[in-house]
């Protein structure tokens, strides 16, 4: 039937607004409980109130479990039920941007902590940065390769993005696969760098600030690798169209923001700070 012939009688059978009124779902409450469980069991384990760490790992597993089921519902709502109208997609992208801003502010606080100690090192540490007797990592070695990998991932991501918009399945798949592999290798190299580091997180404020900041970034990278693997699978599974791919858009935004984050981290903590 042509749109101009549609009567109010027929129009009344359809939704009169572009929004997605979600049905009753257990996941918000379930996720809240699992997150609270994780926070409690982590704090209690690390302060020695728990005899073993099984509860912590169980809580981590439950968080992943609830996330998986929640995202599975969202994928069904977008790909199979068509609930993600343009207004809904815009709303989700805005929500993700707010999330990214809050993440960036968290990194800002870690940069502040680092620079607070680095710009004016106190007399007990020899008034130098890194402190007396400590050796920083060389920015020209493994960190440089890591930086190159992240820059390359920005390129492969843009390649995938434009291929996705152009309905080019093969190149989209290649782009997402390359980005995923680069992220996995990046996390692996960071692991190598951590295990060969001459200082630890317990070695002065230098070690604490350095490993807090790069560790938080590394955890984000692990999450990004999972998101990219998920996107690769969803492209392979024909879940995305060239106009409807919020999951891919948020993953791309996350990748570029974390790449920029790493560049600042590389410049300040590896290069200037060594």
């Amino acid at each position: 039937m042509k749109l101009k012939n549609m009567t109010n009688k027929v129009r009344g059978n359809m939704q009169l607004h572009p929004f997605h009124l979600v049905g009753p779902s257990p996941w918000p409450m379930f996720t809240s409980f699992s997150l609270m469980n994780l926070a409690l069991s982590m704090a209690l384990t690390s302060h020695g109130y728990m005899g073993h760490n099984y509860f912590m790992f169980l809580a981590m597993f439950v968080v992943f479990y609830s996330m998986t089921l929640w995202f599975k519902d969202m994928m069904a709502e977008s790909s199979y039920l068509g609930d993600h109208t343009m207004a809904v997609k815009r709303g989700m992208n805005q929500g993700f941007m707010l999330f990214v801003v809050s993440e960036m502010l968290m990194f800002v606080s870690l940069f502040w902590a680092y620079l607070h100690s680095a710009l004016n090192p106190n007399v007990e540490m020899g008034m130098m940065w890194p402190p007396m007797g400590m050796e920083a990592m060389s920015p020209a070695e493994l960190p440089l390769l890591n930086t190159m990998m992240l820059l390359a991932s920005g390129v492969t991501m843009t390649y995938a993005h434009h291929a996705l918009m152009n309905k080019d399945r093969k190149n989209t798949l290649y782009g997402f696969m390359y980005s995923t592999m680069l992220m996995v290798v990046f996390v692996f190299c960071q692991g190598l760098e951590y295990s060969f580091s001459s200082f630890t997180i317990a070695d002065s404020v230098y070690g604490s600030a350095f490993f807090s900041a790069t560790g938080l970034h590394g955890m984000h990278m692990m999450m990004l690798a999972m998101m990219l693997a998920m996107c690769t699978w969803r492209v392979y599974n024909y879940d995305f169209t060239n106009t409807s791919h919020v999951g891919a858009e948020t993953t791309m935004l996350y990748l570029h923001v974390l790449d920029m984050m790493w560049l600042f981290m590389y410049m300040v903590m590896y290069w200037w700070g060594s």
Binding site: T45, N53, E124, M125, P131, M132, G133, M134, A202, D203
Partner: peptide, 14 residues
């Protein structure tokens, strides 16, 4: 030489 600010252990790791 290990300075005071290196290998800080206020309590055991878990």
């Amino acid at each position: 030489v290990q300075y005071d600010y290196q290998n800080i252990r206020s309590r055991n790791f878990w």
